[in-house]
Design a protein around this nucleic acid. Structure first.
Lengths: 210, 210
DNA sequence: TTTTATAACTGACTTATGGTCATATAAATA
DNA sequence: TATTTATATGACCATAAGTCAGTTATAAAA
């Protein structure tokens, strides 16, 4: 994952890529343990075993690291959907994959408002293309498993992304867990909000394809 | 809106409420002109004609001000829906009200990830109750205009809130307007994203009530 | 092998901003 | 008018993102 012990600097492209991966791995670990909002560049640098300045050789902003992390997580989500979907399990797979891949939901929830707003155009556009392509792959899976034509499942895939965004937001609220939620508000902070609400959207959309 | 000229301090409850409203008005003006992310407490204090310390006598955090602003905007959205919905216009009204009320969408997009995370429990719970009640009022309107029973329109209202959240996120991306969006990505940064995508959700949900 | 050139790396520093608190004072009350 | 109270102030603090002049590992040249 990181550089060989006898080397302190990444000179070749391979070594640079290795260092980049090490930095992303450190970021991922920090986000997983501390939560997205608590992660600082100083902490990431320490965890990755490099100086803060080095981080900025591999990413222009903190959010560029988070965006890379999100795209990786989304890749994992889409791969799982492709690998496990069958006509019978499609709905479940569409709900479970995003809910189960670590960090996917919290990163998705902050994608537009926090992350993308602080990423330079060049990496932003590159990652947006990857996202668009992954959306298409999901449309492809839905088409294959339901028999619906691709132009209709592309629309379905878009609506699903919309609902997923909303459901990810509600999931954040659920994760807050304030010390003393009044009974009459308990349902607004309930756990598993994502599966419940996104599950409704998935069934609605898949039904519409019939 | 603010205190009488011959008074420099708010002592009575009425005067305190007037000062609070003045601070909120200043905040609203700053957000409207500069955008949510550019607004600072120093700037709000200057605009409101008070010192920064005074802001913290009326709100515990910056986000508490933003939350109050959001609830006000939501109140305006719901009032418009109640005032103008008819069986024929219901779908349009549901889409236009949130799109037309200033600041509603950008505040909604940041509600869970940015705003609520930095608001003390006491004001958070109070505002959550107001939100819940407004959701019920929307369910009531939908029930009256479609004839569907209230328990079904309550569910519909929840799904709509979910989609609205997602659509508000996409609208943020649309507002970015980077200097040079490549042609193949133009649709991901297109304007009016909210009306388009949320409109689809509204029609889907209202159809499901028939 | 030694010298030179290159660019990866460092971390103290700068800047920006949310939030605090000792002090001053407006205004109600005695 | 004198006293009390609590509103208002703004210099100050803490934190964290991002910068850059200087250092040095490593490759290439001599």
């Amino acid at each position: 994952m990181s550089l060989p012990d006898n080397r302190k600097r990444a000179r070749s492209d391979d070594e640079k890529e290795a260092r980049r991966r090490a930095i992303l791995a450190a970021t991922r670990a920090m986000v997983a343990t501390q939560g997205l909002d608590a992660v600082t560049m100083n902490a990431i640098a320490k965890e990755a075993g490099v100086s803060k300045g080095t981080l900025y050789l591999y990413a222009r902003t903190k959010e560029e690291l988070l965006l890379a992390l999100f795209v990786d997580a989304m890749e994992e989500v889409v791969s799982r959907i492709e690998a496990t979907a069958t006509p019978k399990t499609l709905a479940d797979v569409l709900v479970n994959a995003p809910a189960d891949v670590p960090l996917f939901l919290p990163l998705l929830a902050r994608l537009f408002t926090v992350i993308e707003g602080n990423v330079a155009e060049e990496p932003l556009f590159a990652e947006k293309r990857r996202m668009r392509d992954m959306g298409l792959r999901v449309a492809q899976v839905i088409s294959e498993q339901t028999g619906a034509p691709l132009d209709r499942t592309r629309e379905a895939s878009m609506v699903l992304m919309l609902s997923m965004q909303g459901a990810a937001q509600f999931d954040i609220a659920a994760g807050r867990e304030p010390d003393e939620v009044p009974d009459d508000l308990a349902h607004m902070f309930a756990k598993e909000h994502f599966r419940t609400s996104y599950g409704m959207a998935v069934r609605l959309v898949l039904n519409g394809l019939k």
